[in-house]
Computed example of a mutant assay.
Amino acid sequence: MTNERRVLVHADTESLAASVAARFITKTVDILDDQATANVVLTGGRVGTAVLAAINASPARDTIDWSRVSFWWGDERWLPAGDAERNDQQARDALLDHISVPAENVHPYPSSDSGISLDDAALQYAAELAAHGDGEGAPRFDITFLGVGPDGHIASLFPHRSGISIEDRSVIPVRKSPKPPAERLSLTRPTLNSSERVWMVLSGADKASALGLALAGAARDEVPVAGIKGRKRTVFFVDADAASEVPENLIAPSY
Score class of each variant (00 low, 15 high):
D75V: 13
R140K: 10
I251D: 01
I164S: 01
R46K: 14
S203T: 15
L215V: 04
H107T: 15
E14Q: 13
G217R: 01
A131C: 06
T144F: 01
S58M: 08
G147E: 11
I154K: 04
P173T: 09
S19K: 14
T37G: 14
S209Y: 03
A126K: 00
P150R: 06
S114I: 10
V246P: 07
R23Q: 11
A242N: 02
D83A: 02
V235F: 12
A242V: 06
R197V: 06
G152H: 07
T49G: 00
R220H: 09
R169Y: 05
N39M: 13
P181N: 12
D134H: 14
A121G: 05
Q124V: 11
G147P: 14
V106P: 02
A243I: 11
E4C: 15
V201P: 09
Q124I: 11
A17F: 08
E136R: 15
P139L: 07
A81E: 02
A91T: 07
V106D: 02
V47F: 02
L187A: 12
Q89I: 10
F237S: 00
P180D: 14
I164D: 00
A91M: 07
W72H: 05
R6D: 09
S177D: 05
L118M: 08
E76I: 08
A182G: 07
G163E: 03
E248T: 12
V101K: 10
D120S: 09
P59M: 01
G230D: 05
R46I: 15
A218V: 11
G152W: 07
A138G: 12
L215Y: 03
V171P: 00
V51N: 00
R189H: 07
G45E: 01
A22S: 13
H107G: 15
P150N: 04
R161Q: 03
T26V: 07
R61P: 12
D120N: 14
D34H: 12
Y125V: 02
T234R: 04
V51C: 00
W199V: 15
I99F: 03
N3G: 10
G163Y: 04
T26I: 06
I154E: 00
G82Y: 04
G133F: 08
F236W: 15
T26L: 06
A50K: 05
L118N: 06
I99D: 01
L129T: 03
L79H: 08
V69D: 03
I154C: 12
P59Q: 03
I64F: 06
V47I: 11
K27M: 10
S177Y: 10
D168I: 04
R46V: 13
V198A: 03
I228R: 01
V69S: 08
Q90R: 09
E245G: 05
R6I: 13
A131I: 04
P59L: 00
G152F: 11
V101T: 13
E14Y: 15
Y255L: 15
A155C: 15
D239E: 09
A18Q: 13
P110S: 07
P181T: 14
R68N: 12
E14L: 15
A205R: 12
A17I: 09
L32R: 02
N3C: 13
A252C: 11
G163C: 06
W199D: 12
D241E: 02
